[in-house]
């Protein structure tokens, strides 16, 4: 475990806690895409199938449980919590994410480390994570303004993936035969998706104006 990966996991955890805090404190989920949260819950459920079969470390196991539990908690809140669900922008969150799920699954069947259930679902979760933010970015574009907590949420999420890429570069140079092509390429695509958001976030921070995404 190197510092980049640990920092990546921490920023990932922070992004989820920011979201939980925002929903719990304001009892509102305005501006949050339920579809993105459902995709993330699916990412964790399909990636951590080995939760009970392969023990890597206590840290890994605890973090996997935290990620699964928190993502399901967010989805449950947005769907079931009487107060929160009222503030969900159903007619703005219209990204047809089922096609994305299907495309990722087909890709995972074709491109995987080994053609086993666990590896196919692992590759599926890697591809899905790369595009899971799309409904959220579309929702931000639609709603025009980005309230600061949602903006920070996306910022930490992008930082997590960016740190993971540095972690893979570090491991590539320090460990022999370390290759994670599937995760690396997919992680690069994912970070690229955030790049435009980062650009507008930086502009709004620099010009000290409210973050506006071009419609």
């Amino acid at each position: 475990m190197n510092i980049f990966r640990f920092a990546g996991d921490m920023t990932h955890l922070i992004s989820i806690l920011i979201l939980l805090l925002k929903i719990y404190a304001t009892k509102s989920c305005a501006g949050i895409s339920l579809k993105t949260q459902e995709l993330y819950a699916l990412v964790f459920l399909t990636r951590y199938l080995d939760l009970f079969t392969d023990y890597v470390s206590l840290y890994n196991t605890v973090m996997k449980i935290v990620f699964i539990a928190s993502s399901l908690a967010i989805v449950w809140c947005m769907r079931r919590h009487p107060l929160v669900r009222r503030s969900y922008d159903k007619d703005l969150d219209t990204f047809r994410h089922q096609y994305v799920v299907l495309a990722c699954f087909v890709l995972a069947l074709l491109l995987n480390e080994k053609f086993t259930i666990q590896e196919v679902f692992w590759a599926f979760s890697i591809y899905l994570e790369a595009v899971a933010i799309l409904p959220q970015l579309v929702l931000l574009q639609r709603s025009g303004n980005v309230d600061n907590l949602t903006g920070q949420y996306v910022l930490f999420l992008g930082a997590y993936r960016g740190l993971y890429i540095i972690n893979w570069i570090y491991r590539y140079f320090t460990e022999d035969h370390f290759t994670r092509w599937i995760a690396c390429v997919s992680g690069l695509v994912q970070t690229g998706l955030y790049a435009d958001f980062f650009y507008y976030y930086y502009l709004s921070w620099k010009t000290n104006t409210k973050l506006k995404l071009p419609a």
Binding site: R5, H12, R47, D50, D54, S57, N60, M63, Y164, N167
Partner: peptide, 10 residues
């Protein structure tokens, strides 16, 4: 037996 490839990252 070869060490089954573990995904040691999250």
């Amino acid at each position: 037996p070869i060490q089954q490839r573990l995904h040691d990252e999250l």
